[in-house]
């Protein structure tokens, strides 16, 4: 049962508290929610340049619309209370058919408001969408697949999946492609979403200003497992990022103690779909596994990357992520053990 309050560890407690607060949240208002925990992909806790500008704009719009609501809603409420009929009064009130001045006023005022809203919005659209690309920006090509993310760093020669690493403070330019159907790249704290559409390349960018882990997920319905197409963006300090890049550029580890596992991998159909550099595996239908162990999660965040989970995944991917496009390979327990042992060396 997820509903019972679990208390292992301080993080859990804090989260439970947060959830309790969230009961009252709709009434307390959004501002309080800002920067509480970065596992909550809240729009009100921006941590990157485009997200900041959107946040500013959204507060402006919220103020104006809130004002309109108070005025018009107030008038309505007042009218309802003030002009309620009495039971014993059956006479008709004076009939009023309209008034040109009043009607003109409430046509002109909204026009002015719209002009203001529009101009502010247009400025931000151009500021974000047509922002010039800085010279030192990092290029990443994102390819959406049913139901996982492929990340390519063309200038660094890195291919990885589901967990994006970017340096803090620098702009990262994302080139968005799709291998099959529409997806959408969305990490609320970093930027608004942009769709990945086959035959229709898009670009977007982020410039995070605080290191940390930011979560998001695919935001365009893309089939059975759309819900489990999660995204994790690790914003690294420059040193962390350099170390990560260095590791990713190595070919797959070749550890003789797990040669059997590697043999199974290379002789079963795994190679049709997966790549491990330094081996014969060149498949591109599934995620690149060269540095599988450098990732915290498996199968686009469907589960944590632990030995048991890896075992369970290979035994029956469909069980963990029903409708997934990786088949169960009908391997014996021993074979899976050896495979997992091998995959566990791929740091």
């Amino acid at each position: 049962m997820r509903l019972t309050i679990r208390c292992h560890g301080a993080r859990k407690i804090r989260q439970t508290l947060l959830s309790v607060i969230s009961l009252a949240a709709p009434f307390i208002g959004p501002a309080l929610w800002a920067d509480t925990s970065n596992r909550i992909p809240s729009l009100f806790a921006p941590e990157s340049t485009p997200a900041h500008s959107i946040f500013g704009l959204s507060m402006f719009v919220l103020t104006i619309t809130g004002g309109i609501f108070l005025v018009v809603g107030g008038l309505l409420a007042f009218a309802i209370v003030r002009f309620r009929g009495r039971d014993n009064d059956s006479s008709e009130p004076p009939q009023i058919y309209g008034s040109t001045q009043v009607e003109l006023a409430w046509t002109v005022i909204p026009i002015l408001i719209v002009v203001v809203l529009f101009l502010t919005t247009a400025r931000i659209i151009f500021a974000i969408q047509d922002a010039p690309k800085p010279k030192d920006s990092l290029d990443v090509t994102v390819v959406g697949h049913q139901f996982w993310w492929e990340f390519r760093y063309p200038k660094l020669g890195i291919v990885t999946a589901n967990e994006l690493h970017v340096p803090v403070g620098r702009a990262t330019w994302l080139h968005l492609l799709s291998a099959d159907v529409d997806h959408s790249f969305w990490v609320p704290q970093l930027a608004g979403k942009t769709d990945l559409i086959p035959n229709h390349p898009n670009d977007t960018w982020i410039q995070p200003d605080r290191p940390g882990l930011y979560v998001g997920q695919c935001a365009q319905f893309c089939g059975v497992e759309h819900a489990k197409m999660l995204l994790r963006v690790y914003v690294d300090t420059p040193e962390q990022f350099a170390a990560w890049v260095k590791n990713q550029q190595q070919p797959g580890v070749q550890d003789p103690s797990v040669a059997e596992g590697r043999h199974i991998f290379e002789t079963e159909a795994c190679t049709n779909c997966h790549t491990i550099t330094g081996t014969g595996a060149r498949g591109t239908f599934g995620p690149d596994l060269t540095h599988l162990m450098s990732r915290d999660t498996l199968a686009a965040g469907a589960t944590l990357n632990t030995r048991q989970n890896l075992y369970a995944w290979i035994e029956s991917p469909d069980h963990m992520k029903p409708g997934v496009l990786m088949p169960a390979m009908q391997l014996s327990d021993a074979q899976i053990d050896q495979l997992v042992a091998y995959l566990n060396t791929l740091h």
Partner: peptide, 11 residues
């Protein structure tokens, strides 16, 4: 408000 919609869309 398009930029805000980049956040709110499909949410």
């Amino acid at each position: 408000v398009a930029p805000w919609d980049w956040q709110l869309h499909n949410s």
